[in-house]
Nucleic acid binder design. Structure first.
Lengths: 239, 239
DNA sequence: GAGTGGTCTAGACCACCCA
DNA sequence: GGGTGGTCTAGACCACTCA
């Protein structure tokens, strides 16, 4: 007997079809899906199977059901999304409310670490953004953000200006890249000169360094971010 | 018209009924649930509703379905559980495999911070465990663990002995307390004398300090743990 | 082969939103 | 009131495990 490649369950096929439409931009954040009944007709499956397909996407936070209104692709600007990747708090546990100020933005050759973290070839260009993040005018975090130049050609942010929007929202709006998840690594570092200057601490004093790799809906690494802070703490909830 | 307290959906009632049985120890980790058909009969609901009730618990990692065998309360000793709260890696990303060696175990009065983290009254007693965690004989982490004496009376571990089992497994086996989730807070500290001594570093040198509050299935804080390390990093995956 | 979970259907009724 | 998601049912058939 031949080994027959068994086709996956209908609800998984439906889920992937939806996911494909989202990834390809035919369904965009903020859009509503067709109604469950409509989808069931379109795909020639039952409503229960449509629900099962969307269940997973709802759990993943990609879709949001609104009773009586419809099912929406979660816009990255919603509050939940906005603070989903937010991980700095004051020593007393109060969340830090950080405004970002752009310091520089350059296109350059990637370092070895950039290449490793972002799965880039050795000659690939990246855009490097440095920012200072402050609360009530007090700088608390210094950031270096590396993103593949190729994917983020269209990103437009002006240097030396306050950044009013979350950068993940800019990624989505301007470049169609949506951050789905991230891996953070927290370590101790001795403040580099630029960090010391920006945070008003002595260069070489111990600071927390958070290295983050953010991945897109299609699970490709799209951002490598390093955040230095001496005054704040990093928090994480595990289940 | 009177405001009628509306009864929650059947699947939620069923889920909570199951949860109660687990919390009360009538269903224990490792046990199998009655079959879906059986549960449906017992509770006078349909199989579909039983499935919906258990879906959430499966997602939360409390239950595990085994096709053709049954549905099991996840034993805390399974690999997935064992490494669920495991958050230290080497700088190269390789997970640290830490064996624990118990240094001391004392019952004493709680500090202000213990009380705050564990929601204790000011006169409540705690058990304080200190451990050294090493990989291949090299000490990498120093830990102080505080747990409410009242809940953990029965905890039996001998001082100055290697701890062969995960401590969360001991909590569960000896005291019936199952860790469901934890909140971690990562900060910089200057190594206290005891930490410096145990980790072979100078007292006062900068180290990573992870403060963890672990909560039980019923969402009560049951452990406050402080882990100091200079050689390792803390990792976290966010979605 | 008996018993379990896994998928799928068709349809009922309810609760909510909005024009 | 018409359309949407939310709950619930009863039953079919499949796939896996274990004796």
């Amino acid at each position: 007997m031949q080994a027959m490649p068994k086709s996956p369950p209908l609800y998984i096929q439906a889920r992937e079809a939806l996911m494909r439409q989202i990834l390809e931009g035919r369904l965009r954040p903020g859009d509503f899906l067709p109604s469950e009944q409509q989808l069931a007709n379109d795909l020639n499956i039952s409503v229960g199977t449509v629900r099962k397909a969307t269940d997973d996407l709802v759990t993943q936070g990609i879709l949001e059901r609104q009773h009586g209104r419809g099912t929406q692709i979660v816009p990255h600007t919603s509050d939940r999304s906005r603070f989903r990747f937010f991980r700095f708090v004051h020593p007393d546990g109060r969340p830090a409310r950080l405004a970002a100020r752009l310091l520089s933005r350059k296109t350059q050759t990637s370092t070895k670490e950039d290449q490793r973290r972002l799965s880039l070839k050795s000659n690939e260009q990246i855009i490097v953004i440095t920012r200072s993040r402050a609360e009530d005018g007090v700088p608390l975090v210094y950031e270096r953000i590396a993103i593949p130049a190729k994917r983020f050609e269209k990103l437009s942010i002006e240097p030396h200006r306050d950044m009013l929007e979350e950068i993940y929202v800019l990624y989505q709006k301007q470049c169609g890249e949506m951050v789905r998840a991230s891996d953070d690594q927290v370590e101790i570092d001795l403040a580099p000169v630029a960090v010391g200057k920006e945070l008003n601490i002595a260069a070489g004093s111990p600071v927390l360094l958070v290295k983050r790799v953010a991945v897109s809906l299609s699970n490709k690494p799209i951002e490598f971010r390093q955040s230095w802070t001496s005054a704040l703490r990093y928090i994480s909830h595990l289940e």
